Simulated scan of single mutants.
Amino acid sequence: MLGSLACTAALFASVVCGVGVHPGQIKHLVTFGDSYTDVVSTGDQGVAWPAYAAGYAHVALHPFARSGATCSNNLTFRPFPPVFESQIPLFVTEKANGSLKLPADETIYTLWIGTNDLGVSALLTGSDPGVSLVDVTECMVNWVKVLYENGARNFIFQNMIPLELTILYAADSYPNRYWAFERNTTEWSIIMQEMTRSGNKLTKLMLQALAPTLPGAHIALFDSHSLFQDMFDHPARYLNGTAPLNVTGAWNACVTTIGGTALECTIFNGTDRDSFLWADELHPSEQADRIVAREIALTLEGKKSQWATWLS
């Protein structure tokens, strides 16, 4: 349960529940992650979900997420600011020099990472030999431990979306701005489905084991995977644009030739964009991000979101 309602778990309960945060408690939101969360280089080419969530919940936003990031460049290298080698050090520096003052009980921290770690030029294409899905998920969960050691006490861990539903990893995908080379699209889609589901299961188990070892910590698991699957399956519940609802295309879709020598884009404008689940071949639309923001805001406020479960 959420808010101040504690779970009265039976001896053989299949889930671990916690009390979470209280209504009115949280005043600050600190975000880590990649382009799904970056408020400057936004994946949706609009207003990123943290800005919406902070507004909905009336909290101050402190954004550290950076586009292109992975959990650690020591695992899956990309020339972008990763969580562990860039985002966390910047947070620690600002906290140490006094430019960032965050009361522990009034601050909540979020992480949404994994899309770049699992995808092209990373685990999917084998560009990091010797690195496994277990390594990457351990890195994700270690974010909680490191921030806890730096005074954080309230966390929202956002799991990975069903990436096989994005155009880039769909079975009927096409050459695009993110991958313009030959590939077996069906194989990619199946592998991505397996990796996101397995990775999410691993992080859930790891978080459930970690939570009791961190006194005073409150950890929420936000089920982005199920939320996006529901948006895909029932778009009329979530999308509200002026074009026909569309969960398999994007409002900014660009087809290339093999090798990427040509680019033909179909672009929708204005409120038509809110009819799409995807902004482009990889990123959720701004309307999808508004839904994420709405549910995260409920969690920040100590209210019930069907997509969030407090583990402690």
Score class of each variant (00 low, 15 high):
138 E>C: 05
227 L>G: 00
11 L>Q: 10
118 L>F: 12
236 A>P: 00
37 T>H: 02
173 S>V: 12
21 V>H: 04
37 T>A: 06
277 L>P: 00
259 G>V: 13
212 P>I: 13
78 R>W: 03
175 P>S: 07
173 S>R: 12
90 L>Q: 14
2 L>I: 01
54 A>F: 15
180 A>I: 05
95 K>P: 10
103 P>H: 04
265 C>R: 01
195 M>R: 15
240 N>M: 10
43 G>H: 08
4 S>M: 03
299 T>P: 05
241 G>N: 09
47 V>G: 02
273 R>C: 09
101 K>M: 05
41 S>H: 14
307 W>S: 00
135 D>V: 00
218 H>E: 02
239 L>N: 11
106 E>W: 00
51 A>W: 10
108 I>T: 02
219 I>P: 12
270 G>V: 06
187 E>L: 14
44 D>S: 14
208 Q>M: 12
299 T>W: 00
260 G>V: 13
192 M>Y: 05
194 E>P: 02
240 N>R: 12
4 S>R: 04
280 D>N: 13
79 P>V: 06
97 N>P: 07
18 G>R: 03
303 K>C: 03
63 P>L: 13
241 G>E: 08
277 L>H: 00
162 P>W: 06
77 F>M: 06
145 K>I: 02
126 G>S: 12
254 C>W: 03
280 D>A: 04
135 D>C: 01
290 R>Y: 03
33 G>N: 11
254 C>Q: 02
173 S>I: 12
200 N>C: 04
193 Q>H: 13
258 I>Y: 11
269 N>R: 14
276 F>T: 05
18 G>P: 01
222 F>W: 06
124 L>Q: 13
55 G>S: 15
306 Q>H: 07
305 S>W: 01
173 S>W: 13
300 L>A: 01
195 M>W: 13
218 H>W: 00
180 A>F: 11
131 V>C: 03
171 A>C: 14
218 H>Y: 01
33 G>Y: 08
146 V>K: 02
123 L>V: 12
132 S>E: 05
8 T>E: 07
241 G>M: 09
105 D>C: 03
140 M>T: 07
174 Y>L: 08
242 T>D: 09
208 Q>F: 05
242 T>E: 07
148 Y>N: 09
45 Q>K: 10
120 V>Q: 13
114 G>W: 04
243 A>M: 09
209 A>I: 12
273 R>P: 08
301 E>C: 01
299 T>K: 03
215 P>N: 07
299 T>C: 04
89 P>C: 09
307 W>P: 01
258 I>V: 12
203 T>L: 07
7 C>F: 08
136 V>W: 08
